[in-house]
Amino acid sequence: MSGGETNDRRRGSGLARRWEGLNPTRAIVLAVVVSVIALTLAVPLRTYFSQRSQFEQVEASNSQLEEQVADYQRKVQNQDDPAYVKAQARSRLNFVMPGDKPLVLEHPQPPTPSPDQQKAMREAANPWYSNLLQSIATPAGS
């Protein structure tokens, strides 16, 4: 045997002696102490992680609200611009400046489709299998 193997055996036998000499009462007390420490740390850690998650949600909401505030501030600043107000009055309210000629286009109603066209549109809107069943159920002469 070499000197390295003897050291390994001595270490291994020392560890085995420690486990053999371990008092069961001490092992139970040690297990209880470790469990109490683990339970004591578990609740604060869970609280920390839940609060961290809530904090991230609040930060996301806050950034979204800041974007909305910036958008509303731009809109308020646009209201102070006379050119913007004129453009909005023309487009939304159909206002006309003095000297301009108003032109209003009326779109005519599309012609109503004939009954044959209506039937063709209904058939085109149906699924293919419905049209197939209809063609089989309806005699060819009608």
Rank of each mutant, 00 (worst) to 15 (best):
L39Q: 01
A87T: 02
K101W: 01
D81H: 11
P108H: 14
Q134G: 10
W128Q: 05
Q79T: 02
A89V: 05
L65T: 03
L65W: 10
F55P: 10
V58D: 09
P110H: 00
L22I: 07
E123H: 06
L103A: 11
N78H: 12
V36F: 13
S53K: 14
S91I: 09
L45Y: 12
D8I: 07
H107K: 15
L65V: 06
Q64V: 01
Q79D: 13
Q54F: 12
G14M: 02
Q79K: 12
E67N: 13
V104C: 04
A27M: 02
V69S: 14
P24G: 03
Q54E: 07
R92E: 04
R74Y: 01
G4R: 14
D71G: 15
W128N: 08
E56Y: 15
S50M: 12
K75D: 02
F55S: 14
E56Q: 13
N94R: 08
D80L: 15
S135Q: 10
Q79V: 02
E5H: 11
A87Y: 01
T138S: 07
Y48R: 09
Q57C: 04
M97F: 04
E5L: 06
S130A: 10
D71V: 11
V76S: 12
F49L: 07
P24W: 06
I28K: 15
D81W: 15
T47Y: 05
S2H: 08
L45E: 06
L15T: 01
E20V: 00
G4Y: 10
L15R: 15
Q51A: 07
Y129F: 12
P139H: 15
V58M: 04
R122L: 03
V69R: 12
R92Y: 02
S53H: 13
E106M: 08
A16M: 07
R10I: 00
T112A: 13
S53N: 07
K119C: 02
L22A: 10
A137G: 09
